[in-house]
C-alpha cells in the first residue's frame, strides 16, 4: 500500500512558485528523507499533507485518503511533528500527551511515552517553560501516541543537541522496525543519510531527484573521489587531469594534493596520465562521495 502519494502538486503565492508539479510516492514501511536547503518548499509540501495549506494544483493523499477533501480521516493514522508550532500555554507536558490520546482515541500510558522521548522528569511542568529541544521531544511524544502507521516529521532535529538528535534517530529506527512509515524533512544531510532508505531532493520547489542513497551515488558518475598527493604541483597538472575522460572536477586545495571526482573507470587513466606527464605521484587514495557532495552537486547544478 502507498503511504503518501503526491500527484503534480503545485503551490503558488502570487507570482512566486513555492512548489512546482511535485510527483512523489512513498511506499508503506519506508523511511523517506525529504532533503533540501531552507526555503526549497519542504514545509510547504508537508503543510499541504496536513491541510494547513491548500495546493494551487494537483492532489496529495495519505493511505489513499485525499488530504484536502478527507483530511481528518487521512490524519487518523499518522503522527505529526509540524513546523512552526507552539505549545499550549497553560498545559503541562503530560497534559499535551493526554490531549493527543483523547483526540486519537488511543489508550496509552503517558509516562511511558514521556520517558521514551526523555522528558519524564519535566512531565508536570508547563510546556510553555520548556526549551525548544524539550518542546520538540514532547511533540514527538504526541506524534507517537496510538502507534501511527506513518510518522510525518518536519525538521525533527531542530533545537536538539547532537545527543538528542541521535536519540531521535534511534526512536525513528524503532518505529520503522515496528512497521511505521517514516517521512521526514531536513536540511541536515547526516540526519538523512543515517536513517533513510530513500531520499528526495527538493530545490526551488522542484523535486530534482528521488532515489536511494546508493542510487544517487551511482547516478553521479559512480561518485568516486580520488585524493592524490604529488611530489610537487606544477603548472598545468590540473589541466592535464581535466582532459582525462570521466573526470568531473579537479581541484588542488593544498600545495601538492589533488582532489578529483570522476567515474570509477577513470581512476587508473588519471594515474597513467599523470605518470606520462612526468609527475611523481607520492600517494593516492579513493573516497566514496558523501551525500553532502551529492547534495551540493544536485542543488548547485541549477544555480
Amino acid at each position: 500500500m502507498v503511504a503518501i502519494e503526491a500527484d503534480e502538486v503545485s503551490k503558488r503565492y502570487g507570482t512566486e512558485t513555492a512548489l512546482d508539479r511535485v510527483d512523489l510516492t512513498v511506499e508503506e514501511g519506508e523511511t523517506f528523507g525529504f532533503l533540501g536547503p531552507n526555503g526549497a518548499g519542504k514545509s510547504t509540501f508537508i503543510n499541504i499533507l496536513l491541510d494547513f495549506v491548500k495546493p494551487s494544483e494537483g492532489s496529495v493523499g495519505i493511505f489513499g485518503h485525499d488530504c484536502q477533501a478527507d483530511g481528518t480521516v487521512a490524519r487518523e493514522r499518522i503522527g505529526v511533528l509540524p513546523e512552526g508550532y507552539s505549545v499550549f500555554d497553560r498545559l503541562t507536558g503530560r497534559q499535551h500527551i493526554e490531549y493527543a490520546m483523547r483526540s486519537k482515541g488511543a489508550d496509552a500510558d503517558p509516562s511511558e511515552i514521556l520517558d521514551r522521548v526523555g522528558i519524564l522528569e519535566d512531565a508536570d511542568r508547563l510546556a510553555s517553560d520548556y526549551s525548544k529541544g524539550m518542546a520538540q521531544r514532547m511533540v514527538l511524544g504526541m506524534a507517537l501516541v496510538g502507534e501511527p502507521d506513518l510518522l510525518l516529521l518536519d525538521e525533527p532535529s531542530t533545537g536538539l543537541d547532537p545527543n538528542g538528535a541521535a536519540e531521535m534517530r534511534q526512536i525513528l529506527r524503532e518505529e520503522n522496525e515496528r512497521g511505521a512509515t517514516i517521512f521526514f524533512s531536513s536540511h541536515i544531510l547526516e540526519q538523512v543519510e543515517a536513517v533513510c532508505d530513500r531520499v528526495g531532493i527538493l530545490q526551488d520547489g522542484e523535486l530534482v531527484a528521488v532515489d536511494t542513497i546508493e542510487g544517487l551515488r551511482e547516478s553521479l558518475g559512480g561518485g568516486t573521489k580520488l585524493v592524490i598527493t604529488l611530489d610537487h604541483l606544477e603548472n598545468g597538472v590540473l589541466d592535464t587531469v581535466r582532459t582525462v575522460r570521466g573526470v568531473e572536477t579537479a581541484v588542488s586545495n593544498e600545495d601538492s594534493t589533488l582532489e578529483v571526482t570522476c567515474t570509477n573507470d577513470a581512476k587508473m587513466d588519471i594515474l597513467v596520465e599523470l605518470h606520462d606527464a612526468g609527475v611523481d605521484v607520492v600517494n593516492f587514495r579513493t573516497e566514496e562521495a558523501s551525500l553532502e557532495d551529492m547534495f551540493i552537486e544536485y542543488t548547485g547544478r541549477q544555480r
Partner: peptide, 9 residues
C-alpha cells in the same frame, strides 16, 4: 498552537 490541534485527526 493551532498547528498541534490540526495535526491531530
Amino acid at each position: 498552537a493551532i498547528r498541534l490541534t490540526l495535526s491531530l485527526p
